[in-house]
Design a protein around this nucleic acid. Structure first.
Length: 658
DNA sequence: TTGTAGACTTGGAATAATGTTA
DNA sequence: TAACATTATTCCAAGTCTACAA
């Protein structure tokens, strides 16, 4: 219909040509906020994709040193475990116990399986080896084969990846039914390692418009149910067997539905901005209330507001990992110290450790001491008279829809906007982006978004440092060239004669040797290539001595470099002038600066994950406005999928405020 | 009033795709 | 051009919070 996009979107105009339909700009429509209950009027989709049936590989695991044959069902489970051998899950006794219990059960399902009773006698490495060989094979596939796979994947996406919601084409997020696997619970999850069973169509409920064609279940199967509920957004659902959690197929992040609720989330947080002063005033007052429950609630609100803690719902003991949030904190998670200091140390969501030392208001400290006086055990709840339902109920009395999590969004976005004030207005784009990422990092730290340090972190760091030294080496030579060109500069510009920092003699020698090796390699390769060419042209090969001569030249060059470095007398080309060399130095300086910035960022990002706050907590309009204001291209801070997800936020004014 | 099912957001890690370098 | 590094995407676990039943 519309081959030509109108291009009214200033920002994201690249690759969206595949899209047939005109973009629906819901944020410009009448009820941009979206209605509270009805989510759609018509909904068409093709159902869900089931993972292919298991294909046995017949690779035998060993039991007590001997190869044993397993029936397919058991072999599949053994293969799940083999695939985990390289992970730290297999160091976890709970994982092993749960796995082995379920593995034995699959063995019992057929009397053709050998008796396996002792986990220690199991050896799954032959299967792991097989998996690795398969991986190699996949890597070594021909271009055509890879292309074919890609097309198959595309076809799947074509069929299941889109739906029509109120007549508009929308991307579906996770249209694949989760394949069977070993449940990989985080932290000390009591059920980790348990077998997550294959989901059958008979367990899956489809939600679809009344008028739409119901997708066919796989041959010989039927759906659990087909419903037409337009008050929910999911297309399909099923219950997973390990924790009995309900799983859903939802739309993708860039969909209208998700966009609208994202927008609402941030608008809600902005509403909080107007009343947060009152709420703070109130909870400060409540800190001294006679009723313990109210005091506790006030103290909890202080933490949620000031430390951006999560609400902390109750969890089922013994069925989930023992993690806590604000309302579920226990005495063992805090330590009080003179000077109104509180040390926090607990496992939060995903068993990520929260460690923080905070100086709190005097009354907060007094309250904590007071609560402590009544404790019988460290395992007791710090706020034994507060739970998230009550707390949220109290919050909603201030504002419709105000809950604990709104504070996290509000504080994250607010902090971000404040931190962005440190942007160097006249700095380079790179320096501005560094400031942006720093602001982002402050938010990530506030929200305690951590990541495990990459195994190759030190390596990566060393590489960057080497890169910087190589640039400094270049600069050192350029400076010497300038002095050679005009010796009088030595007096006028004494900095030219100063040595570069962290450029040791030893390093320089090694580097020169390295350059030599590189050059020699290049020469040898070129020699070979030339000879091949000559051969094809029917000419005889070049003589080895020619190559050797060139190699010797390379060695000479190294000596020359070393000599020049030591004496400071450079061999100067006729075309070189002081001005030209000066300009070259400037260029090198620029590059050093850039690499240094990446180094600083890398260090600062070692254990902090910026993604989560960028995706979920920071109002994207702050970022868009910042880009316009500081003339930074938006794609420097939002990748394609984020630009897509945040389309609705891209048209703000450069002076927009959260 | 409490407990729980249900629906949706948030979260880090694994994996795939892409970019860079030896 | 393979090997390696970086970035984007996918995966699915683990939270929050609401509605509803008992």
């Amino acid at each position: 219909m519309s081959e030509k996009k109108k291009g009214k979107q200033k920002v994201v105009k690249e690759e969206s040509d595949e899209e047939d339909d005109e973009e629906y700009r819901w944020w410009e429509a009448e009820n941009a906020k979206g209605d509270g209950t009805v989510k759609w009027n018509t909904l068409e989709h093709n159902g869900v994709y089931f993972p292919p049936e298991y294909v046995p590989h017949n690779v035998k695991m060993k039991y007590d040193g001997k190869e044993v044959h397993l029936e397919p069902e058991a072999e599949e489970v053994a293969t799940f475990y083999a695939a985990a051998l390289n992970t730290e899950h297999v160091e976890n006794p709970t994982f092993n116990e749960n796995f082995f219990r379920d593995f034995k059960a699959t063995l019992d399902n057929s009397d053709k399986n050998p008796p396996i009773e002792d986990f220690k006698k199991c050896d799954f490495t032959p299967i792991l080896d097989h998996l690795e060989r398969e991986k190699e094979k996949r890597k070594a596939m021909s271009k055509e084969e890879k292309q074919k796979l890609k097309e198959e994947k595309l076809q799947l996406e074509e069929k299941y990846g889109y739906c029509y919601l109120d007549g508009r084409k929308q991307k579906v997020g996770n249209f694949r039914i989760e394949p069977p696997s070993l449940f990989r619970g985080r932290g000390k999850h009591p059920k980790t390692g348990s077998l997550k069973l294959r989901v059958q169509p008979e367990q899956v409920t489809i939600n679809i418009g009344k008028a739409a064609k119901v997708p066919e279940p796989p041959a010989g199967h039927s759906w659990n149910k087909v419903i037409h509920d337009n008050t929910v957004t999911w297309l399909a659902t099923w219950k997973e067997n390990v924790n009995e959690n309900i799983k859903y197929v939802f739309l993708a992040a860039n969909s209208t539905l998700k966009g609208q609720s994202d927008f609402k989330k941030f608008e809600k947080a902005r509403e909080l901005k107007d009343i947060v002063a009152k709420i703070r005033h109130d909870y400060n007052k409540d800190m001294t209330n006679k009723v313990t429950a109210i005091r506790q609630r006030a103290t909890a609100m202080y933490f949620i507001d000031r430390l951006a803690l999560r609400a902390g719902n109750e969890k089922k003991e013994g069925e989930e990992a023992d993690t806590v949030g604000c309302c579920s904190l226990r005495f063992e998670h805090i330590r009080l110290e003179a000077g109104n200091t509180v040390h926090f140390d607990f496992l939060g969501k995903d068993s990520i450790r929260y460690q923080n030392t905070v100086t709190v208001d005097g009354q907060v400290f007094k309250n904590l001491k007071l609560f402590q006086r009544h404790k019988e055990s460290d395992k007791d709840q710090l706020f034994d008279r507060v739970n998230t339902q009550e707390l949220n109920k109290h919050l909603s009395s201030y504002m419709d829809g105000l809950t604990a999590k709104v504070f996290r969004t509000y504080n994250a976005s607010h902090t971000f906007q404040e931190q962005l004030k440190n942007t160097p207005v006249s700095g380079s784009v790179n320096e501005k982006i560094l400031a942006y990422n720093r602001a982002n990092r402050e938010v990530a730290i506030l929200c305690n978004h951590q990541r495990t340090v990459s195994k190759t972190f030190d390596n990566q760091m060393n590489r960057i440092e080497d890169k910087i030294r190589a640039l400094k080496y270049q600069k050192m030579r350029l400076k010497k060239t300038m002095l050679t060109l005009d010796p009088k500069l030595k007096k006028k510009r004494p900095e030219l004669d100063e040595p570069e920092s962290d450029l040791g003699e030893e390093w320089c020698e090694e580097y020169e040797k390295h350059l030599e090796e590189k050059e020699k390699d290049r020469l040898r390769k070129k020699f070979e290539k030339d000879n091949e060419k000559r051969k094809s042209e029917g000419k005889g090969p070049l003589s080895e001595s020619e190559l050797n001569e060139q190699l010797e030249e390379a060695e000479e060059k190294t000596k020359q470099l070393s000599k020049e470095r030591k004496t400071g007398k450079m061999e100067v080309k006729k075309s070189q002038t002081v001005e030209k060399v000066e300009a070259q130095i400037e260029k090198v300086n620029e590059r050093i600066k850039v690499v240094n910035l990446t180094k600083v960022e890398k260090e600062e990002n070692k254990t902090t994950a910026l993604g989560t706050s960028k995706i979920n907590y920071i109002d994207p309009r702050i970022s868009a406005a910042w880009c316009y204001k500081h003339d930074v291209p938006i794609d420097k801070i939002f990748n394609k999928s984020l630009r897509d997800k945040f389309k609705w936020a891209m048209e703000v004014d450069k002076n927009w405020k959260f």
